[in-house]
C-alpha cells in the first residue's frame, strides 16, 4: 500500500500494483524499495484532491484488464464497454480536463494523458474563436485593430487562396 498526499493535504491509500500505472510513481517505488513504511508516502504537490480521486478511479478501471489492453487482444464487447466508460469518465468540464492533463503529464500516465487531450481538442473542434474563448474562459485582450485587421491579414493564407 502506498499513500499519495495531494496539495490540500488529503491522503489517498492505493495498492502499489494499481498505482504502478503511473510510470513516475513506479520509478519512485522502485527507488525506495526495501525502506521503511514511512517512505512509501508520495507527495503530489501540484494536484488538488479532486484530481487524485479521478485518477484513482481511472486506475482501478484499467487495473482490471491491464494485460488485455497492452496486447490489444481485448474482446470486441469488452473494448466497447471500456470505450463507453471512458467517454463517460472524460465527459466533464474543461478545467477538470486541464487538471487531468497536468496530472497525467506529471505522473506519466500515457493513456490518461491522450484521452484527456483528445477530449479537450474534441470540445474545441468545429467552433469559432469566440466560442472557444467562451468555453475555455480565455480572455480576448486584443485591441479592435488587432482583431479586425492585423490578425486576419496575418492568417489570410489559411482561409483565402490569395495566389489562386
Amino acid at each position: 500500500m502506498i499513500t499519495l498526499i495531494s496539495s490540500d493535504k488529503r491522503k489517498f491509500h492505493v495498492l502499489e500494483e494499481v498505482a504502478n500505472q503511473s510510470l513516475t510513481i513506479r520509478d519512485v517505488i522502485e527507488d525506495r524499495r526495501g525502506r521503511r513504511r514511512a517512505d512509501r508516502i508520495i507527495l503530489v504537490t501540484n494536484i488538488n484532491s479532486k484530481i487524485p480521486e479521478k485518477v484513482i478511479v481511472y486506475w482501478l478501471r484499467h487495473f482490471l484488464m491491464p494485460e488485455e489492453i497492452a496486447h490489444a487482444s481485448m474482446s470486441h464487447k469488452k473494448a466497447e464497454k471500456l470505450k463507453k466508460w471512458e467517454a463517460k469518465f472524460f465527459d466533464t468540464d474543461i478545467d477538470t480536463l486541464n487538471d487531468l492533463i497536468l496530472a497525467a503529464d506529471s505522473l506519466d500516465i500515457p493513456s490518461l494523458f491522450d484521452g484527456a487531450c483528445e477530449k479537450v481538442s474534441d470540445i474545441l473542434k468545429n467552433r469559432s474563436a469566440e466560442e472557444v474563448g467562451e468555453i475555455s474562459k480565455i480572455e480576448n485582450e486584443f485591441t479592435h485593430e488587432e482583431e479586425e485587421e492585423e490578425i486576419p491579414s496575418e492568417n489570410a493564407w489559411v482561409w483565402r487562396n490569395e495566389f489562386a
Binding site: F113, L124, K125, A129, V132, G133, E139, F142, E147, V158
Partner: peptide, 22 residues
C-alpha cells in the same frame, strides 16, 4: 501540453487559435 492538444485539431482550426488571445 498545449501543443499536444493543438496537434489533435484539424490544421486550419489549429492556425485559427491565433485569434483566441495574445
Amino acid at each position: 501540453l498545449k501543443c499536444n492538444i493543438l496537434a489533435r485539431l484539424p490544421l486550419k482550426e489549429m492556425v485559427g487559435t491565433s485569434l483566441l488571445s495574445r
